[in-house]
């Protein structure tokens, strides 16, 4: 095993390169992904290495890109599609939700569509409108899709390869805030040695509170756990990694020990991933709960302009307020946390 220090963006590129090397049916499609290497440079160098037939600059039409990917997969290819920014994915919604997601069931299992949709996601980078959104709940709500979000360069590389190798369509979220975060990466890690794609990971063990999150907010959660430990509170942090399916067993096992749940994500609260987790924990672990679950999320508002985005993106203090709340330390109306029953 050889590791190298890579940014998350470079780790994604390494994952793509490995997948394309391993499987000649892997094609990459998107806007500006060829000579430019993508607006975040994730596909940097791939077109030079694999040619314009496998690394394809497409016309500017997201539905067209997804519909083309469906047809390619129908023919036996494994397209990896780049949606340039999260807010651009909606024009491809039918092709994702009604075509890509449903084709396997529609054809009684005859047609497999192993398409991976890479989407730079979420905010906190001072970007323009439509460049900072967290649309994961739409796709989690869609039967037939698998949804993952990565939090570190190693997962970026290996989960992307797992997604490409998977026979189901996968929506692959890449937190923009993490593109330049570095980490040790074994780009050739055998996929069998990596945790399965649908599993969560306990990234910091703890005893008092279970803090569940994903993507860039794994870092926020770890910071919060460190801060809480200064006050003698032991927070267990779970990186979901997979949003569909959700690894409810790992979450429930933790909550049965801690008795307290905080869910953290940047997407809007209403019918968000946190709602699903809080409900599931309540159903499974009601007798173990010491306090109502708390959600720390983006609000149910349009994503704000850059100078105001700090009001939307959960930060360390909002997480700590929620931790205090499930510990009974602050009133239930604690700022930035869902008001409980």
């Amino acid at each position: 095993m050889t590791t190298q220090t890579l940014t998350l963006a470079k780790a994604l590129g390494a994952g793509l390169r490995r997948a394309m090397t391993d499987d000649p049916t892997v094609m990459v499609l998107g806007e500006d992904i060829g000579r430019l290497g993508g607006v975040y440079r994730v596909t940097d160098g791939l077109q030079a290495e694999f040619g314009p037939r496998r690394v394809v600059d497409t016309p500017l039409a997201e539905s067209g890109i997804l519909g083309t990917a469906v047809g390619l997969a129908y023919r036996g290819y494994r397209p990896v599609v780049e949606i340039q920014f999260d807010g651009f994915v909606y024009v491809a919604f039918d092709q994702i939700v009604s075509q890509l997601a449903k084709m396997h069931a529609r054809t009684n299992g005859k047609v497999k569509l192993p398409v991976t949709i890479r989407i730079p996601v979420a905010g906190g980078i001072g970007a323009a409108e439509h460049h900072s959104e967290s649309p994961e709940a739409y796709f989690v709500h869609t039967a037939g899709l698998r949804v993952v979000s990565v939090s570190n360069p190693q997962d970026a590389s290996t989960v992307l390869r797992q997604a490409i190798a998977c026979d189901d369509p996968v929506v692959f979220f890449e937190p923009k805030r993490l593109y330049h975060v570095k980490g040790e990466v074994d780009a050739d890690l055998p996929l069998d040695d990596a945790p399965p794609m649908g599993t969560a990971r306990v990234v910091r063990p703890g005893d008092d509170v279970t803090l569940v999150t994903f993507g860039s907010h794994v870092a926020t959660a770890l910071d919060a756990a460190t801060a809480a430990s200064d006050e003698g509170v032991s927070v267990e942090v779970i990186d979901l990694r997979s949003l569909s399916p959700i690894d409810h067993d790992t979450i429930a096992a933790s909550v049965r020990r801690t008795g307290r749940l905080v869910v953290l994500h940047e997407g809007p609260r209403q019918a968000g991933v946190g709602a699903e987790i809080a409900t599931s924990v309540t159903e499974r672990c009601f007798d173990f709960l010491e306090a109502p679950p708390a959600r720390v999320t983006g609000y149910d508002i349009p994503y704000p302009p850059a100078k105001l985005e700090g009001n939307q993106v959960p930060d360390l203090d909002r997480v700590l307020v929620a931790v205090d709340r499930v510990l009974g330390r602050v009133p239930a109306s604690g700022a930035g946390v869902e008001v409980g029953a």
Binding site: H104, A105, T107, N108, G109, K112, P114, A143, G144, R146, C166, D167, D168, G198, S244, P245, I246, D247, H248, D249
Partner: peptide, 8 residues
């Protein structure tokens, strides 16, 4: 056939 592989 909702998924090609197992889905919890």
């Amino acid at each position: 056939h909702v998924y090609a592989g197992p889905h919890a």
